[in-house]
């Protein structure tokens, strides 16, 4: 074939893609590349000098290795919990609840409108020492002093993050479940599968990409969060994001902050890849 003439429609397409490409390359790739280069620079007493040394990364591992593991663990915990709850919610809406399900879905998605900070303050109000739970228990005469273990710990962080992430996890799962053909579920039952086998053999493998999407979104947002742990978490158990924030802010050590960020991104991607491969293997038809 000879060289094709570039048609006017192709030019129009190119023009339409231009803004998106500019935003993507300029703001996203550009800034990431800049910080990636900086992560190898040297910082000493509020001065940053261009350099190429892996020292920043070694420092991250020695100084923050434990925090990193703790943070990834919180991410996995929150993502597993949220994805599981979201799956059962979406499954009930799709297959069991009929009209009522549509209403519940609408309500769940409406909570997306409530801001992130609003939810954090809501949980502080609910779990706090003069919060709803404690006042109720005191008024009922079940306790005479507020329970202090409700707030400012890992549990409060997990509850708050799960509440915030749940609608985000429901969306892809509901979309995928809507595409699952009910006839296939009936056919599996007909061939002798129990309800739980149908779930394991038919439903989960078919929505695996959505499971992974929900899990990844929840994991990345949870593992990268620094507001929730600061507001409802225990001061002794800060997450990786809190340390990144202080490197960029208080300490003005951008190279170190950048190295920490890329360490978090890198380990997160590796972890998600492993979990994705595990899920694929676990849900393969045998």
């Amino acid at each position: 074939m000879t060289a094709r003439k570039i048609g006017s429609s192709q030019i129009v397409t190119a023009l339409m893609l231009l803004p998106a490409a500019a935003i993507f390359l300029g703001l996203f790739v550009g800034s990431l590349a800049f910080f990636f280069v900086q992560s190898f620079w040297k910082a000493s007493t509020f001065k940053v000098t261009p350099d190429f040394r892996p020292g920043n990364y070694l420092d991250v591992v020695t100084n923050y290795g434990e925090v990193l593991l703790y943070t990834l663990g919180v991410g996995v915990l929150v993502a597993s919990l949220t994805t599981t709850l979201a799956f059962f919610f979406a499954y009930a809406v799709r297959f069991a609840l009929g009209r009522l399900g549509d209403l519940m879905l609408a309500i769940a998605l409406t909570t997306l409108f409530g801001g992130y900070l609003v939810k954090i303050y809501a949980w502080r109000t609910i779990l706090g020492s003069d919060g709803i739970i404690n006042s109720a228990l005191i008024n009922l005469g079940l306790i005479d002093r507020p329970l202090s273990f409700l707030l400012f710990n890992l549990g409060a962080v997990v509850v708050t993050l799960t509440h915030y992430l749940l609608p985000l996890a429901i969306l892809p799962l509901y979309g995928a479940l809507r595409d699952v053909d009910e006839t296939e579920l009936a056919a599996a039952r007909d061939m002798g599968a129990s309800r739980s086998r149908v779930m394991l053999d038919i439903v989960l493998p078919q929505v695996r990409p959505a499971l992974m999407a929900s899990f990844s979104v929840c994991f990345l947002l949870a593992a990268g969060d620094y507001v929730t742990p600061a507001m409802v978490g225990s001061p002794g158990n800060a997450m990786f994001g809190n340390f990144i924030q202080s490197q960029f802010g208080l300490r003005m050590n951008t190279p170190s902050g950048a190295a920490m960020s890329f360490t978090l991104i890198g380990t997160s991607l590796v972890l998600l890849t492993l979990i994705g491969a595990g899920l694929r293997k676990g849900l393969q038809p045998r």
């Binding site: 296939e184 009936a186 061939m191 038919i202 493998p205 038809p285």
Partner: peptide
């Protein structure tokens, strides 16, 4: 329930397991 009846059903729109091969579909039961 259907899983405990000695009946087999061929559905109008087939309901083949979309994530399986022909062999896996037939072997499932």
């Amino acid at each position: 329930g259907p899983e405990r009846r000695p009946t087999g059903m061929v559905f109008q729109n087939y309901g083949l397991f979309q994530h399986m091969t022909v062999r896996q579909n037939i072997a499932y039961g």
